[in-house]
Design a protein around this nucleic acid. Sequence first.
DNA 1: TACACTTTTGACACTTGGTGCCAAAAATAT
DNA 2: ATATTTTTGGCACCAAGTGTCAAAAGTGTA
Lengths: 209, 209
Amino acid sequence: MSGREKVSKSKRGRPRSIEPQEVAVVALQLFEQEGYEGVTMEQIAEKASVSRRTLFRLFPSKVDLLWGGAEEILDVVKERVKALPSGKMTLKEFVYDLLMPALGRLDEPWLASLARRRLRLIMASPALLDHAALHEMRLFLADLIRSRVSPQKAPPELLAGSIASVAFAAILWWAQLDESPMSVQEAFISAFSSLAEVSSLAQEADVSA
Amino acid sequence: MSGREKVSKSKRGRPRSIEPQEVAVVALQLFEQEGYEGVTMEQIAEKASVSRRTLFRLFPSKVDLLWGGAEEILDVVKERVKALPSGKMTLKEFVYDLLMPALGRLDEPWLASLARRRLRLIMASPALLDHAALHEMRLFLADLIRSRVSPQKAPPELLAGSIASVAFAAILWWAQLDESPMSVQEAFISAFSSLAEVSSLAQEADVSA
DNA sequence: TACACTTTTGACACTTGGTGCCAAAAATAT
DNA sequence: ATATTTTTGGCACCAAGTGTCAAAAGTGTA
C-alpha cells in the first residue's frame, strides 16, 4: 500500500534503479513548491529519473507518496504487542503502554521534521486527510482491544475509532506547530485531559434533543 | 461541494430535468448493488437519465453522491449558534447544547435509514472515509470553540479535532448497527464515557517511551 | 406572435490518476 | 554461454474530472 515493498531475498535479478524513499523525498519537495494537486505523477517520475509506470509500481497511488511513513507508527504497536504478557490489560495500559510509545516515534528528531512536512501537506488537501493507513489502524486497534483489553462500557470498535481519532487529531495539531512547544505525546494527553471534563457529565446526561 | 446547489431565485430559464436528490438515490442503489468502485459515473448518469456532464455539475465529484447529506448536520449547529446568548459557554455546554442536537438529527427515523446506507458504503471504501465535509466541520468547530467557549487546557484546534473525531467515530459505529440498539447520541456519550477512564490518568502521566 | 433573456443541458476534447500486459534490460547462478 | 530472476518502461486503455460552447427550454415583455 506504500513505498518500499517486499525486499527481494535472492540477490538475483536486476537491482533497483532508485530507492523508493528517495522518490518520496523528491515528491515531497515538489509538493511543497507547487502544491499537491499542482504536481503530476509524470513530473515526479521525470524528476526522480524513473518512468511513470515504475513510479506507480513503487507507490500505487499518489497519496502513498505522502502517507508512506504511516506504517512505521503501526509497526511500533505491533512490536509491543508481541512482547506483551498473555492475559488482558486495562484500557489505560492499552493507551499508555501501546499507543503512547507509537506516538513517541513521531517525536524522534530525525522523523519529526519530515513527518511535519508531510502532515502539513496532508492537512492542506482534504482529499488526503484520510487514507487506507488510518483505516487499517482502526481495524487493528479494534481487534487488539477486543482480544486483549478487559471489557469496557463501550464496544471495542467504538473505542478503537474514538481513541485512534483523538490520536490522529493530536498528531495533526502537533504538525502545525513549529518545532518544540509540545510533543505528540503531550498533545495526546492534553486532548484526553480536556475531554475528561466533558465525559464527567456523561452519567447524568439527558438526551433530550 | 455537494448536491442541490444554489436554488435559482428567478423563475426564468430552463427548469431542472431532475432533482439532485433523486440522482443521489439512484447512485446509492447502484453502489449497494455493485460496490462504490464498481459503478462509473457514466452508468449513474445513464440510469438517472442525464448526461455525464450534467451529473458532474450536480455532484462535482463521485464521493459527493454519498457525502451529500453531511451539511445537514453542520446546519443544525449553525442554527443553534445563531440562537445563542452572547458570551462564553463551557465545553460541556458546547458539546451537549450544540453537538448533541446535531447528532440527534441522524436519529430521526426518516434520515437514519438513509444515513446508515450511505455510511456503510463509506466505511467499505477507505478512500471515502474522510472528505471535505469533515474538514469543514473541524474548522468550523475550532472557530466556534475559540470564540465562544471559555478557555481550556488544550488549544481550540486540538479540541475541535478531538471532539469532531469522536463524534464521527460514534457515527460510524452507529451506522453498523441494525436499527434500534443505540442512538447516535448514546453512542457519542458512550465513547466519551470510556475515554474518561483513560483521561483520568492524564495528570499523573509519565511520558517515558 | 415575436423577440429578448436566463438557465440548464449535453456534446466534445482534454488532462490526470491508475492498471494490464509484455518485451527488454540487468543482474546472478550453473 | 545459457537459464533464471527481477526490475524497468513503453503502450494501450479505463475512469474521474474540467473547460468550452452551442443548443434546448423555459419566462417576461411588446
